[in-house]
Write a protein that binds this DNA or RNA. Sequence first.
DNA 1: CGTGCGTTTGAGTGAATTCAACGGCTGTGG
DNA 2: CCACAGCCGTTGAATTCACTCAAACGCACG
Lengths: 232, 232
Amino acid sequence: MLNWRVAETAREVAGLGTVTGDRAEAPTSELLGLMGARMNFERNAEIFGEEEPADYLYKVLSGAVRICKLMSDGRRQIGAFYLPGDVFGMEPGEVHRFAAEAIADSSILIVKRSAFIIAARRNSGMVAELWTETMTHLQQAQEHMLVLGRKNAQERIATFLLEMARRLSKQGAVELPMPRQDIADYLGLTIETVSRTLTQLERDGVIAMPASRRIVLRNQTTLDRLNDTLAA
Amino acid sequence: MLNWRVAETAREVAGLGTVTGDRAEAPTSELLGLMGARMNFERNAEIFGEEEPADYLYKVLSGAVRICKLMSDGRRQIGAFYLPGDVFGMEPGEVHRFAAEAIADSSILIVKRSAFIIAARRNSGMVAELWTETMTHLQQAQEHMLVLGRKNAQERIATFLLEMARRLSKQGAVELPMPRQDIADYLGLTIETVSRTLTQLERDGVIAMPASRRIVLRNQTTLDRLNDTLAA
DNA sequence: CGTGCGTTTGAGTGAATTCAACGGCTGTGG
DNA sequence: CCACAGCCGTTGAATTCACTCAAACGCACG
């Protein structure tokens, strides 16, 4: 997919060109080959860990990679599989939010990422910001996969409330802009389950609902625990 | 988050700077204000539809937006909520893969995206490609949310098999690089359900499994139907 | 010929769904 | 002012799909 050469057409820039056939071994272009190092990883070896500094970008040359996130009780969500030709490790922040591990013995090309961020910024601050924004959305999407793939209804609601509180908090209370059906479709639940779970959290004194769209977070600790965040 | 001015520090480039407080109305910077147009959308109005050309980027000035995807039987998955300050609409391809709708009456800044892609490409083909790759991953992540949020076990397995066939097809048969546990954690299922579902698909003649890691897709139509793809 | 790992199969359980009804606003019109 | 319709949200009862717990199978390897 990404051959590390300058794309010639808009279609290629858009990532739609250069049909890839057999991807068992992806080509290492001169350009990046010079900048990076080739490393081999054994099956199940960690390529980078969650919360480790995100100083490099990675390209799969052969083998396969998974990125995954663990909950404190061991539940795991794999965010993506990367196969030969795929580039991964792009992060909007300073650290990786997922761990990356080799699924099979794999050869990986590793390059410093700072050069790209700096290049993007030097030439166009706006491009740098848009790229960063894209990486942020990617991160949020991958976080949300953990919610959809591995969390129960109560945990989903807790995560949702904390997300909303963080993003639009009016100090203490959250004013939800969306109806229950939208929350349900976001969290992969039914409207009834959303309603029941909110009611239960209110009965337990974790939240208060002066109105159906207005939610007061009463017990942050419990919400954090349900969200699997006690440290972070 | 993204104030449309050139970031001054690496931390800002990384999207970690500029603490945002009340986001009820995001600032419209000069830079982009000049380039774009402000538009208002009523509650539930469509901002762009699935499969429509992705010619613009969007920034929420006030209100709230959802991006969502519908299955043919009406099941819906919301991929993200966008609140004031958020930029959305970045696509690696020529068309949007999600629809965007206003949740409440909203004011949206709209700018042509081509300028950014071209700027990124002119200055650094590699930055353009990395950004595109990031957008591709974002798209895949959002597609996967539909799987995790709304599909049953059979549909998840079908989608997974088609994805793997597309990405590493050796003509007809798929050689899976990962164990059942990884498939389970990717699809948000248990290893037992993965196994049972594969066995059932084999009994139904939809696939064949000459070995546990080798899968032959026998009935593409059924898989496509389970994947909710008859046209696309 | 065991040992260990990955996978499959079976039986019973449970969390979220489905189906159904009801409650509470808000705005409109008699 | 009240009646009513139309949403939106809540609550209840029964069902179901995937999960949990448990055991067995097959295959590679020493």
